[in-house]
């Protein structure tokens, strides 16, 4: 191993901070009044107020939108699963000592980072759609995970590099090969560092799925657009859509922070 590779493995990023997605509540803002609690209270109270005191059109709206919420979750979950697979491969590729693999993985990340997600969506859906016809949902999931796989790759890379090189040496000295070392020793430890940012990416991805409403996928936002274009109730519709996104992401960010805490407790034991 050359010195450079060695040096880069000695650098240990402790926190993987990808400043996207809803703010994850930290241990610090645990008080009675926190930004999270305030937003959550505001969102739920507004929703309740609208449903109780302005039943028309809000009750009709809330009955119309759940199909879209379901689709939003479907796109998000399929995309994140695929993105995790792509991310793991990309992360491994980025730390690979094989020049060719490394170059492919790095180039992929570079391209994805350089092209706006909306343009990537159009590209996969319309431009490539000229040659291969795939269902809308599939195109949406492929496009989203193609993009998020690159970000996820960076998360995996940082997570893997955060594990001390001594762990690899100990495993290799016992006779484990590269893959066994990764599977039995490195990934189970890296997972703890990786999981919170993956949760973060999940939330960011969920929000970004609203972009697929541009395609013919009936997600939450598109259902809203359908409703608005029939009823012309733009203000009411988008208020409702925004509130639903907000409540979902707030709940998810809370879950991620709980998970984060559990994991860190597990580490200190």
């Amino acid at each position: 191993m050359n010195e450079n590779a060695k040096r880069s493995q000695d650098i240990k990023p402790v926190v993987i901070d990808i400043g996207d997605g809803a703010a994850i509540p930290s241990r610090g803002d645990r008080g009675l009044v926190s930004a999270w609690k305030l937003s959550f209270f505001f969102a739920v109270a507004t929703l309740a107020y609208l449903l109780i005191f302005r039943p028309t059109p809000y009750v009709r709206l809330i009955k119309f939108l759940p199909d879209g919420i379901l689709v939003t979750f479907q796109v998000t979950i399929f995309s994140i699963l695929l993105a995790i697979v792509i991310g793991l491969l990309t992360g491994l590729g980025r730390i690979s000592r094989n020049r060719a693999i490394n170059l492919v993985a790095s180039t992929y990340v570079e391209i994805v980072r350089g092209v706006p997600l909306l343009v990537q969506l159009f590209y996969i859906y319309y431009a490539l759609g000229q040659f291969v016809k795939v269902p809308d949902m599939v195109a949406a999931v492929v496009a989203m995970s193609f993009c998020y796989g690159a970000y996820m790759g960076e998360v995996f890379r940082a997570g893997i590099l955060s594990i001390s090189h001594g762990q690899t040496e100990a495993a290799r000295s016992l006779g484990f090969n590269r893959w066994q070392t990764m599977y039995y020793v490195i990934l189970p430890q890296a997972w703890r560092t990786i999981l919170p940012p993956v949760g973060n990416e999940f939330i960011a991805l969920l929000k970004d799925t609203s972009l697929v409403s541009i395609l013919a996928v009936s997600d939450l936002l598109r259902r809203g657009r359908e409703f608005a274009s029939e009823s012309f109730l733009y203000f009411e519709t988008y208020t409702m859509v925004a509130l639903i996104y907000l409540i979902i992401t707030l709940i998810l960010s809370k879950l991620v922070s709980i998970m984060e805490e559990r994991l860190s407790r597990h580490v200190t034991r």
């Binding site: 001390s164 001594g166 762990q167 040496e169 100990a170 495993a171 189970p188 430890q189 580490v267």
Partner: peptide
């Protein structure tokens, strides 16, 4: 060939 390291390198998980 067994090896013992300065920093132990036990698997913490």
């Amino acid at each position: 060939v067994g090896m013992v390291f300065q920093s132990f390198n036990l698997f913490p998980h």
